[in-house]
Amino acid sequence: MRQEIQFKLNGEAIALEVNPNEVLLEVLRDRLGVKSPKCGCDKGDCGTCTVMINGKTIRSCLVLAIEVDGQEVVTLEGLMDSGLTPLQKSFIEHNSFQCGFCAPGMILSATELLAKNHKPNKHEIQEALSGNLCRCTGYSPIINAITDLTTKKK
């Protein structure tokens, strides 16, 4: 029994018929071609499928597509209306990522943190990123990029 949903994706109005059991991650990737959210575990452990709904990060592998009816969904693609964000630039400067597979999810979690807290301390950064697994970097280069950005003199 397909159902029509309407939501905003990175600012664009989307109207789509979905099955009630379709997962948001699948709809974003396979039906709308938005590929930055990845599937790493399919059960909410790894955080590579992180997207924002109404400004809050969620695991899109755990959300049904019908749940975003009327909501605003933002993926990494939606952060770059005016080019790379200062956060993304800081990650490049610090060589923060290695394989880069976790980067889209990690960047969204960090973006959410900085929207709420302009000067997070190390522990707050660690907590904010704790739902995004990274196997390459040991996390420190990611944390350092955020710290440097937020403590830099304007």
């Binding site: 930055s36 790379l84 060589n95 990522f97 394989c99 880069g100």
Partner: peptide, 23 residues
């Protein structure tokens, strides 16, 4: 020299394609 990665931008922008991203 500690040059920045030449694949830095493709990875932080989400443009990097992995096997499951190919159409």
């Amino acid at each position: 020299k500690s040059a920045v990665r030449i694949d830095g931008k493709v990875k932080v922008s989400g443009a990097a394609e992995f096997i499951d991203d190919l159409d």
